[in-house]
């Protein structure tokens, strides 16, 4: 089960009011390589993992991704919460505002809604962990794109933290893949 802790994983700082940037950051709230995809992907894959290390890492990284999803929602909210309607009109955030107002909603930067079709769970641990490693690299690339697109020093600071976490997760999934392959190889000789 899960229990909510009343804290963020990272002290989010936002220095400006920037609805256009908020629209871009939504990529990681509901896009294919965003935090929601990551969390649901890893947590869905746990049942068919053959080793305890793999069950553990998917549980812990999947849980951390949900904390990242909360961080992204906080960035989006802080970027728009004080925006007068005139600062929203004519920006890419206006299309989001038409449906959702200032509430974060899981779609990508272009407005495509989140779908489970972004992820997979194949009942094959090597396939799943290989997908997970690719997912971490895709998320890292997306964060690098977002950092280039951002002019807000506070937002950049938080995006850098999230980018760094993708690097760590990639490393851990790589170690898990090796553990699972070793396990499968030893099983063949029984």
């Amino acid at each position: 089960m899960w229990i909510y802790e009343k804290k963020l994983e990272y002290p989010v700082r936002v220095d400006t009011c920037d609805p256009a940037l908020a629209a871009l950051i939504l990529e990681q709230f509901g896009g294919p390589d965003g935090e929601l995809s990551a969390g649901i992907r890893y947590l869905s894959q746990r049942w068919t993992m053959p080793t305890d290390q793999a069950k553990g890492i998917l549980t812990d990284i999947g849980t951390e991704e949900l904390a990242h999803w909360e961080i992204i929602g906080t960035l989006v909210w802080r970027l728009v919460k004080d925006a007068p309607i005139d600062k929203i009109k004519g920006t890419p955030f206006a299309a989001h505002f038409a449906n959702h107002g200032r509430s974060p909603f899981p779609h990508d930067a272009a407005g495509v809604p989140w779908t489970a079709a972004f992820i997979n769970s194949k009942d094959d641990p090597v396939t799943d962990l290989t997908e997970d490693m690719a997912a971490e690299q895709k998320a890292r690339t997306t964060y690098e794109h977002l950092i280039k697109l951002s002019d807000d020093p506070g937002v950049i600071d938080t995006l850098r933290f999230l980018r760094e976490r993708e690097v760590v997760h990639f490393q851990r999934f790589g170690e898990t893949l090796r553990i699972v392959e070793d396990f499968q190889n030893t099983k063949k000789f029984y």
Binding site: E5, K7, E9, Y10, Q53, G56, I57, D60, I61, E64, V168, H169, R172, E175, T176, I179
Partner: peptide, 13 residues
């Protein structure tokens, strides 16, 4: 809390 998260991921593998 972040340090415990990071250590937990390391210890999982």
């Amino acid at each position: 809390g972040f340090c415990t998260i990071e250590m937990a991921l390391f210890l999982d593998t």
